[in-house]
Nucleic acid binder design. Sequence first.
DNA 1: GAAAAATGGATTTTT
DNA 2: TCCATTTTTC
Length: 675
Amino acid sequence: MVQKYVLKGAPAPPLDLKVGYKNALNESQFAVVTQADGACLVLAGAGSGKTRTLIYRVAYLLEKGVRPEEILLVTFTNKAAQEMRGRVESLLQTKAKGLWCGTFHHIGHRILRRWAREAGLKEHFGILDEEDSRDLIKTCIKALPKGPSDARLPKPGVVQSILSFSVNAGKTIAEVVAKNYPYFAGFIGEFEKIKQGYEERKKRTGHLDYDDLLFQWMGLLKSSESVRRTLTEQFRYCLVDEYQDTNRLQHELMGILSCRHRNILVVGDDAQSIYSFRAAEVRNILDFPEKYEHSKIFKLETNYRSTKAILELANESIRHNIHQFPKTLHNVRPGGARPQLARVRDMRQQADFIAQRISEMNEAGVGLSEIAVLFRAHYQAAELELELARRGIPYLVRGGIRFFEQAHVKDALAYLRIAANPLDELAWTRALTLQPGIGATYAEKIFESAGKEKGGFEKVFSHDFGAYFSPKIREGLGVFKRTMKALLKEEVNGHPDLMLEAVLENGYNKQVLVSFDNAQERLEDLRQLVNFAHTYKNLRDFLADVTLREGFRGESLLETRLLEKDVEELVLSTIHQAKGLEWHAVFVISISEGQFPHAKSMEDEDQLEEERRLFYVAATRAKEELILVHPMTRYDYSVGTVINRPSLFVEELSKRVLEEVEVEESEEEETIYLD
DNA sequence: GAAAAATGGATTTTT
DNA sequence: TCCATTTTTC
């Protein structure tokens, strides 16, 4: 398609419907696509073609002549962003070059790089992932002046969540502690000191953490009028997906960015808001009409995914929530089997029952990849995993440690990070402590003396540096220096793939062999990483992407996209991670009191409603078959075997929407496994 | 700095 | 119960 450019104020050229909007959309979707100017709230129920609507809206705008760089389309995951961009492009049969499409963090990063100076940041700032940030907080805790009470100070990870929550929610540390961590009220002063130290260290080493990508972005918009004017002028259309998951900071960012042209379209489903624990606020979507006067509200209530029987259960369940925009999903798919509630004796029998039913379904012609087992928490799947492995049913557990967060990947990257930013103390420590004989203490000493070295950091990697250390330290330091020298060679430096290769060849390969029991797998991972790095010409872009990109264990980088569609694997997933996905048959396990809703959420009305929304998300993942499983007993390590009542969410449902089925004792129940 | 012993925590998780 | 992390000890 030929790109059209429209001068501001000129009438839009007539729309030639190359893209078949009318045929592809239902009436309400079409209304959104063609009429959603100004401030618009699209309440999109589960399975209502929300993504599709958003994609067509963007395509429509582009066809109408809006330039790609004038559109800002924000999502929560890279995957969603990639998919949307891809689908827009395939609709229009052209590259949407210049379209601002990405996650909040991604877009913040892009803007901060562009205006680093105006934002008061180092030109080559690096990004800390969660682990890096936690490590840094740990050192700040250690650096705290010793008092009589710090014995009981919470762990770095906990401090990290408090600080992070406070940034994202736009609240003071004291407020966050009072609301979410009342039992830490005595530590507020310490938290503030840690925060202060943390900020100083980040500044000194030239780092931003994930939250900073939003916070500094906001700071930039507030402090630089010219940047604010440029951006608000530029983004004629702002669109946000999954708005119910936005936190205060993100909500305010969108408010500012859209203030000039006032075209803000937010899409979401308040009934699927399940991320309050990381500062998402349903209020952002619920109060949208008040914040934006004269805003239009569209409702997408037609569900294309599930059968009538499944929707009846979902609708009835969510009706128990008070705080919501009431809406009822209408089915297009008639009838269907009533969802089932299977009562089983315990977790073992649950695993057995599910494996059995899956085998039967599979024999009846349902592909394994069309079935999912969902749960509230990962540990609930342990027994099931064993049983599936025993029966040889292939499965994939979504989640777990992310690819880029695995130790061997981070080790290898540490060397590159030093090359990119010699002030990156975390990276120095990481790379140095890989050497036998060098621990945290020596790493710090080496880093310090490296900083004092005249003639810059390159000098450090030369032969004579560190002569005053003991022979053992010198040996480890020697290996480190050799590696660094190899990757600072002129023909290597700056090319992430060559640099990684240099790291591997100069000793890290061997390191992997001695450090990890599954060394071969990890070496393969690293080879994949080199391949992946090959697509980058620039070291800083590579490092930034690697920290900003999600990625799961078991997915090797290049194969992922190719294989994704045709692998026949059963999916095991938390409900959180299943959002947005769908399967022919869905099992939800451990539907019992104390498990789901989670025990800790029972006291608080808001939390209970969130749990119910989670149940709603789980139920609406199923297209044809929904099976809830309730283990009637549970083994608790402190009290032994206890009786488990069924989940509140099941008890409050009428018999009309849920069928109870008896599960027969399996014959091989008493089998004892040796291992 | 490494190994052994003790402690504590056990929801969800993207970037 | 079981794992990860921290503290203690050598």
